[in-house]
Amino acid sequence: MTPLLSVQGITKRYGNHIGCADVSFDLYPGEVMGIVGESGSGKSTLLNCMAGHLTPDAGQVVFDTRTDGPRDTITMSEPERRMLGRTDWAFVHQHARDGLRMGVSAGGNVGERLMAVGARHYGDIREQATDWLGRVEIDASRVDDRPTTFSGGMQQRLQIARNLVTGPRLVFMDEPTGGLDVSVQARLLDLLRGLVRDMGLSAIIVTHDLAVVRLLADRLMVMKDGHVVEAGLTDQVLDDPQHAYSQLLVSSVLQV
């Protein structure tokens, strides 16, 4: 089977400082990969390099495109890469404000990606937007309200709806549950797990919350100081961590 995303030797430096160094892995269709590590370990740098927001200094990000098969997205032309970003890829930001247009209604936010790929029928766009609001458990009566009137959890769910409306195959998530209280986190995770299973999505989730990866991720990478120190199946890494830092990470989780 061809991997959906094949990352080879991604390196990003900020001057003398290492963002992330020589990261390689394959992601297969339908698989969810978790990336954990402490703040400053290079998780977000890696994610942004893969999603095309940052240009890595070395390495390849080969994505299995629908039309042309595997292509290196880093050497791809910018219009092609931005097109991928609107169709096959989705990016869920930690702060919903970064991923939403706060001055535009919820329906407009969800419809934007549809209109960006050429939808020009108002009734259809609105119907799809309403349908997606339902799927992320936002009441259809809120379709004309601005995200500024939404709670943090709702904003995050709206951001997810906005990203998934064009049926992407790969979702990048940067701390999707960060800044939400635990009960809202639990519902959001439940929702995400359902969507990932139903749509057969592949996802890369960056987080420092081990509970998130335990619930969502099939495989796990542990990063420290820009390097991947341990990788494997989620349960394997969390239940039997081998590297000293992974052991520290797992044992640092507070038990209630």
Partner: peptide, 18 residues
């Protein structure tokens, strides 16, 4: 330059929804 004009229709969408 990349002919990404979806956003213009978002404005018209907002008009109709309001």
């Amino acid at each position: 330059s990349l002919e990404e004009y979806g956003l213009m229709h978002v404005k018209l969408y907002e008009d109709i929804s309001r």
